[in-house]
Amino acid sequence: MIGAVARRAGSGLVVLWAAATAAYLALLAAPGDVVDSIIGDGADSPQIRAQIIAEWHLDRPAVVQYLDYLWRAAQGDLGRSYLLQRPVRDVIGDQLAPTVRLAVAAAVFGVVLALILAVVTRGRWARRVSSTAELVLVSTPPFLIGIVLLSVFSFRFGMFPVSGDRGWAALVLPAVTLGLPIAGVLTQVLRDGLDRALDEPFAVTARARGLTERSVLVRHGLRHSLLPAVSLLGWLFGALIGGSVIIEQVFGRPGLGQVTLQAVSGSDMPVVLAVVVLAAAAFVVVNTAADLAYLIIDPRLRRS
């Protein structure tokens, strides 16, 4: 088991390296001069150009440039945004907290809602209503959900603030908006897993022991249905990151999404690259967690 974790960590490092390298190559591949790409839409002057050449060692051989970039990235030095005139680390550091808050709140809401729905809607009609709702949620653009929620709960009833990130009330609508599509997908997967598990011979055996249907579901079925759900952790993470870019825009919240969007529109490559590398790092963590969760849930995967 320790070996498995070590192997995981090793391949995680490889993924990180690959992401950092890909980001670097993307910078080189961008049309035009590298210095132009790094400046983006920021102020341009001979001094700034000299500063960039010094920082990125553009006057040295390509290999040195690359290794130096990796070395700096490994130390957490993500360069400097010439558009914002600040170190990238500070730009991201300032905006990390609101996005993490949003993502965690949305994930918790989505997962809890999905578990409840999958377990409760077992009857024929409840199942039909719930599946239709899931289909609609999964097929609706998240910004539409956000806009509908805004116009009903903020503009019509004035229950929640329209924008900003002040207090818990401001978190409710964005988290619900981001969490609903996640709940839609997870409920489908969980329900399908439950159906499959409750159809297996071991569920018949459990019923034949005199267990109530609910006990069979909770003690046997749920754990089996978690297996396919866990494999969606990586997807869940992607949905949170990608969704937060849009949700922050809809609700006018500060956060990494806004930073990324500004960086993309302003061609602020150092920030874009940093976001990509950061997402890769988070992705490695999430996937390692998923693998561990597998081992905990399914003893068949543990090698003795």
Partner: peptide, 24 residues
């Protein structure tokens, strides 16, 4: 029915690999 099951009658199915919960 539940009171009968397990107490009055026990059920043995084909293959224990799938008839016993593989996760327990």
């Amino acid at each position: 029915w539940r009171r009968l099951r397990g107490r009055f009658a026990g059920l043995i199915l084909q293959d224990a690999l799938v008839s016993l919960d593989p996760l327990r």
